[in-house]
Design a protein around this nucleic acid. Structure first.
Lengths: 173, 173
DNA sequence: TAGTACGTTTAGTTTATACTAAACAAAGTG
DNA sequence: CACTTTGTTTAGTATAAACTAAACGTACTA
């Protein structure tokens, strides 16, 4: 016997919650996205509250984060004061947005601190330990720079889709 | 005036701690890796304790995790009961190991739950809402499958290096 | 201008998790 | 076999983050 839609939906919401959590985002973000993703029409905050099982405050915060990341987008309806939101269905677009988001903030600062270490090590005597550390930090810095270029390239793409990935897969093989 | 090595090292340790934290790993893991990475010789647990500023328990736990992820590796010395560890310097190798690690566990189970939702939606009447949801979940599942293939390919590579990335970068551009 | 319908902010609670301190286990060594 | 040296496990603590409940601000409406 086929399960009823509501039950299936609930399972899906839980699944996306776990995935969200796994990648280091709040569980609620996954839930909200799941709710919007399964809805044909844009939903208001209160409608999301109802389905996602969180309070308005949490929804408000998470919706803003999701919106900033490009995973959902606001829909304006004239003559209606409510905010509506709908899910982005182009995930490749979303990936680019997320990478762009992550590139700023914390990560950049941390990588920058490795560069700083490098500069500090470069200005010094030729103490063998210093030379050793310099070499290692230089390697790490090169690695980070490469990764940075990769992420940057991905987030600057006009289009990134399954076909691009297929091409990349061929090279990797 | 050049700073002394110890001070520089400390800065580096803090930097890697932040990066570790940013990617959703314990701060201590970054610190431990940093200590080993800057050491020319393999270090014993107690030596790591001393430099990383954590207690033996924490070091023990985190070292095991790092080892499992392939970011550090144990070094056995005959006639010495201590365990020694050294940092992996081939980061591309490490990336592959991390992806492999992540592919199992939580993530797989979560993705599997999306597949389950898909199967549940497939066995049912042609209620328009069900059809809509089916279509959406199918799209998401395809996306996950593609990502899975990508990660799988990367972790199955014999060698992944800066040159491979450069090639990929060319395609992306 | 009072009232209502929103979304946001805030103060406090809950929850998850990394860590500490200390007990424990195992395996030498005298 | 007691004693030391080592790593692991555990019970408890500290901390960070997400969430709740409620106050608040703002703008529309009567």
């Amino acid at each position: 016997m086929a399960q009823d839609l509501h039950q299936i939906k609930q399972g899906f919401i839980e699944g996306l919650s776990s995935i969200s959590q796994f990648w280091g985002f709040p569980k609620g973000m996954g839930a909200i996205f799941a709710v919007l993703y399964l809805s044909a029409a844009p939903l208001s905050l209160d409608e999301i509250v109802e389905q996602a099982g969180l309070t308005k405050g949490a929804i408000s915060t998470n919706v803003r984060a999701l919106s900033r990341m490009g995973l959902i987008r606001p829909v304006i309806r004239f003559g209606d004061r409510k905010d509506y939101y709908e899910a982005e269905t182009d995930f490749y677009k979303a990936i680019r947005a997320i990478l762009k988001e992550r590139q700023n903030s914390e990560f950049d600062r941390a990588v920058e601190s490795v560069k700083l270490t490098l500069r500090e090590l470069e200005t010094g005597d030729s103490d063998p330990e210093r030379v050793f550390m310099l070499e290692r930090v230089r390697t790490l810095n090169t690695f980070f720079t490469t990764l940075d270029a990769l992420f940057g390239a991905i987030s600057r793409l006009d289009s990134l889709g399954a076909n691009t990935i297929q091409t990349v897969l061929k090279i990797l093989k």
